[in-house]
Design a binder for these strands. Structure first.
Length: 329
DNA sequence: TTACACGCCACGAAGTCGGA
DNA sequence: TCCGACTTCGTGGCGTGTAA
C-alpha cells in the first residue's frame, strides 16, 4: 500500500503569494504630507521594512527633524531556511533603531542592524515587543496577511497609516472597523498610488507596468488604498451633492431585498433623499461621518447580496444622509 | 460515529470599461 | 487621455449530507 503523501510543502508554496512589493518614495510623500502634525514626539515603527531598501525608512530619515519624530524603528522579516548541514539559521529577521544622531547619519549607507532571534515576522514576539514601544505604524504590509496585520494593530491600540488593496474594504473585519469609525481611508486611492517596485524575478503584468528611469520594475495595480486611524481634513469635508431624487426616481431603482435605492456612482448620490442608499465601495474615499451614516454592508434583509430586479450590482454599502430629517409618518 | 464527497460561498498585490 | 467604477471566475475553506 502506498504511503499517504504529505503535500503540505506544495500547498505552502502555492499559498505563499509574492508580497515583495516596495512602495515608491513619491507615493509615500504624496500621502504623508497630509499627516505631518501627527508625528511630533512620536515613535514611528515600520515593521515590514528593510532600512537598506525601504522608502518608508528613507522618507522618515529625510523628514525626521521636520516631523519632530522621537524615534524611528524598522524591522524586517526573513524567511527561515533550516539547513540540515549547518547548526544555525542564517536568515534571521532584523531590526534597526534610529534617532537621527550625527553618528547614525554618517552610517546610513550601511546601517548597523540588529538580528532578531527569530524570523522577524510582524506576529513574532520580538516584533510585537517593538510594536508595544511605538506610537504610529506606517508601512506597506503583506496584502495576503492584511486582516491579521490590522487585527494586531487594533489589538495593541496603535495609530497606523498603511497600504492595502481596495478590496480590503470588502473584508468583513475591515468594514466593521470603518463602520465603527475606528479606521478610514487616506487621501490617495487607486491611481493616486502610482505603482510598486517589484523584484527582478517578478513578471511585469498589466498594461500599465513599466521600467522607470532608474531601472526599477514598476507594476501599477491601480486598486490600492491607504487605511488609517490618523485624522485627515478630507473626512470632515462634505461630499458636494448636485443630483436630485425627486423627478428622477427612475434613475434610482429600489432594492428587491432592502428598503433603499441603488446609486451607481458616488457623484450621483441625490441631495434630497433621506432613506437608505446603496453606493459603491469607493464612496468611502470621500466619506464624511458627519454627513453620512454607514448602515450596513452588502447584504439585504434576507442576508443575501443586495439585488435590483433579481440582478446583484457590485458590492454596495448602505448609507443614509444625516443632514436630511426623515419625515415621521 | 467517522470519514469523505459535494456544493456553496467568500475572496482577490487584476485588469477592463466607459464617460468626461 | 485620464480616472472612477465595476467585473470575472478559479480557488480554497467550510458546512452539510451520506455511506460505511
Amino acid at each position: 500500500m502506498t504511503r499517504k503523501a504529505t503535500n503540505k510543502l506544495l500547498h505552502k508554496a502555492k499559498k505563499s503569494k509574492s508580497d515583495e512589493f516596495y512602495t515608491q518614495l513619491c507615493d509615500i510623500e504624496s500621502e504623508l504630507k497630509f499627516y505631518k502634525k501627527h508625528f511630533k514626539k512620536k515613535v514611528v515603527y515600520c515593521n515590514c521594512d528593510d532600512p537598506r531598501i525601504s522608502n518608508f525608512f528613507k522618507y522618515f530619515v529625510i523628514n525626521f527633524e521636520e516631523l519632530e519624530i522621537k524615534k524611528l524603528l524598522t524591522s524586517c522579516y526573513r524567511e527561515q531556511t533550516s539547513d540540515l548541514f549547518s547548526e544555525k539559521n542564517q536568515d534571521n529577521g532584523f531590526f534597526f533603531e534610529y534617532t537621527n544622531t550625527d553618528e547614525e547619519k554618517n552610517k546610513l549607507s550601511s546601517p548597523e542592524i540588529k538580528l532578531f532571534n527569530g524570523d522577524g515576522d510582524f506576529r513574532s514576539y520580538e516584533s510585537i515587543e517593538l510594536l508595544k514601544k511605538s506610537d504610529i505604524v506606517v508601512t506597506n504590509p503583506p496584502f495576503s496577511l492584511f486582516r491579521e496585520y490590522v487585527e494586531q494593530l487594533v489589538k495593541y491600540n496603535k495609530k497606523f497609516l498603511i497600504i492595502g488593496n481596495v478590496n480590503a474594504i470588502t473584508y468583513k473585519e475591515i468594514f466593521q472597523l470603518i463602520k465603527e469609525n475606528r479606521a478610514w481611508l487616506g487621501i490617495n486611492l487607486g491611481r493616486g498610488i502610482s505603482g510598486f517596485i517589484v523584484p527582478e524575478h517578478y513578471e511585469l503584468y498589466g498594461t500599465e507596468a513599466r521600467i522607470d528611469e532608474f531601472g526599477n520594475r514598476i507594476v501599477s495595480p491601480n486598486n490600492c488604498l491607504w487605511l488609517t486611524n490618523l485624522d485627515t481634513f478630507k473626512r470632515h469635508e462634505d461630499i458636494l451633492l448636485t443630483k436630485k431624487y425627486s423627478g428622477n426616481e427612475h434613475k434610482y431603482p429600489e432594492y428587491d431585498n432592502y428598503d433603499g435605492i441603488n446609486v451607481n456612482k458616488t457623484e450621483d448620490i441625490p441631495l434630497d433623499y433621506g432613506g437608505a442608499m446603496g453606493v459603491p465601495i469607493t464612496f468611502l474615499h470621500k466619506f464624511n461621518p458627519d454627513q453620512f451614516e454607514l448602515i450596513k454592508f452588502r447584504k439585504g434583509n434576507d442576508e443575501k447580496d443586495l439585488s435590483v430586479n433579481g440582478k446583484c450590482p457590485y458590492f454596495r454599502i448602505l448609507i443614509r444622509n444625516r443632514r436630511i430629517q426623515i419625515k415621521s409618518e
